[in-house]
Design a binder for these strands. Structure first.
Lengths: 195, 195
DNA sequence: GATTGATTTGAACGCATGTTCAGTTAAGGC
DNA sequence: GCCTTAACTGAACATGCGTTCAAATCAATC
């Protein structure tokens, strides 16, 4: 068991994922070759197969990890409270968490069609699980009368779609700060479920 | 000048675009080969080059046509009226128009990164032009006091993002009719800009 | 029925693809 | 200072890519 310390394995593995994430986000899974990824890592293409079984698994791994971390981060961050408070937390969390890792978010959204059926089903289940957390908040608020929402499933999808839009245009150092963006969206979301 | 009538040119051209639209939407531009498109058309790959200079132009043509038709359809459908009425028209038009052509919409959104810089700039300008039409409604309503919107640019982006979300899940014959979807979204959009 | 020219074929071009694997390198344990 | 073994190279594999083009096909015109 030589090379337990100073092994490149600890370095190349993460670097492979970083390179793949960056390249997939920029050019798309289908348009990026294993040789391009290897070049970014500073290694020959064959060496990548010490870390992944194939290209498809690499994509799935990136998406699975992203979704798992999203759910853990959400469940950790979320504080109990009235539905309106939890909705505000959701908006704030969603915008900030996604703005902080645009590449992983972009891949998780754009590359779904490049997953095999089995892998797709796994990721889709995690996504639905995240959407259900928002819908639960909306349902609770509707039941206690603080929200007026005819269809909580559609409202959840609409809110997430609106918040996802931020990632398509937000850039650090732009006209608006993260707090501005958060406040503007919370204002719209809050009003859209009231009355 | 033989074959002016009954020429296959009138048939193969549109069939090429239809096949490309369908395949690009399903598998992505980078993942679809000219040979696949040709097979769908019922022709050899070489024949396609009587109708397009190259694969990139085919993608650009699909996106450009889609955006042009969108703007014409919008400007034709839109009736004058109070900002709140025009906003309702926008919501209705956007949802219906996009739901009716999911493939073209999907491509126009997902394949932007596969355009060359020049082509990208062209499409982006058309998209901004469409967004500006919504922003103008929001600005008019803010100025005459019927809306209360702190930032009309962000509000326009947020509304379009919310409405675009419909295309990711709506299917004919599902739980909700097109009218249901329209009403639910108009309810949310209307409230989000009020007060 | 010969002519014309639009339309398509089918093969070829050079190059890139994901993946495999025998061989090379080098770092830790003894 | 040898030995082990993780890590990597570099070439090879079969296959596919976008595109070109001489030759074949075929429908309308004369």
């Amino acid at each position: 068991m030589a090379r337990t310390q100073g092994s490149h394995s600890d370095i190349t593995g993460p670097r492979l994922r970083d390179a793949a994430r960056s390249l997939f986000a920029r050019f798309g899974y289908a348009a990026v070759s294993m040789r391009q990824i290897a070049a970014e890592v500073g290694v020959q293409a064959g060496a990548l197969y010490n870390y992944i079984p194939d290209k498809q698994s690499l994509l799935y791994d990136l998406m699975k990890t992203h979704m798992d971390e999203l759910l853990v981060a959400y469940d950790t961050a979320m504080q109990p409270g009235a539905p309106v408070d939890r909705l505000e937390q959701f908006v704030s969390f969603h915008i900030r968490y996604h703005a902080a890792r645009p590449e992983a978010v972009f891949i998780a959204y754009m590359e779904l069609r490049n997953l095999t059926k089995d892998n797709f089903d796994q990721i889709e289940a995690l996504r639905r699980s995240y959407e259900a957390r928002l819908e639960n908040i909306l349902t609770a608020g509707t039941q206690n009368g603080s929200f007026q929402i005819p269809d909580t499933r559609i409202a959840a999808m609409a809110v997430i779609a609106m918040l996802n839009g931020v990632n398509t245009w937000f850039r650090d150092g732009g006209r608006l700060s993260m707090s501005d963006v958060e406040a503007l969206h919370w204002d719209m979301v809050r009003k859209s479920v009231l009355r």
